[in-house]
């Protein structure tokens, strides 16, 4: 049963991604990307990473995509006015993306999964993740707060009108 969930979620994410790339209207692109994010959050859930699933929804879809939406509306881009690229560029783009896809697949072929030892379920729960985060990775955690501070200051400074 579980694999069907997996297939459905994968189909949704791939379809939404493709639609995002090829949508004419930027607002439509944003919406499709949100759909992709939701399906990925679903993947996180079935992979037992509950905390990350919630964080994905809150941070990515809730904050980041909203920000994108704000900017698009601010710049009045709801009408699609970009001229298309010449055909040769499109073909070249598809070819290179396809090449990248194949090459990466080939690179990953060799990876072998070590079977899961018993008793390590539930590592993705909030409690367990929190334990790891605040013990081993305390320093990066605090550093990331500095990162946010600088990002905030930077973006305020950058977008200020003189």
């Amino acid at each position: 049963m579980l694999e069907y969930v997996f297939y459905i979620l994968s189909a949704i994410s791939i379809a939404c991604a493709l639609l995002m790339v090829f949508a004419k209207n930027p607002i439509h692109s944003v919406l499709f990307l949100i759909g992709t994010f939701f399906s990925i959050a679903g993947h996180f859930v079935i992979l037992n990473a509950h905390f990350l699933a919630i964080v994905q929804i809150i941070v990515y879809t809730g904050a980041i995509m909203v920000l994108f939406l704000y900017v698009i509306m601010l710049l009045n881009l709801n009408k699609e006015s970009e001229s298309t690229k010449p055909n040769i560029v499109k073909v070249a783009a598809v070819v290179s993306a396809g090449l990248l896809f194949l090459v990466m697949l080939a690179s990953f072929k060799e990876s072998i999964a070590i079977p899961l030892p018993e008793g390590t379920d539930g590592i993705g729960s909030v409690k367990n993740l929190g334990k790891v985060l605040f013990s081993e990775y305390l320093l990066p955690f605090e550093a990331s707060s500095v990162l946010f501070l600088s990002a905030m200051a930077g973006s305020v400074l950058l977008a200020k009108k003189k």
Partner: peptide
Amino acid sequence: TGFYIFGIVAGVVLILVANLIWFR
């Protein structure tokens, strides 16, 4: 800029191909 991005992708592809051919 588009050309630069294309260059980046091409470079990555080349590195991976090189990895596959010479180091496996």
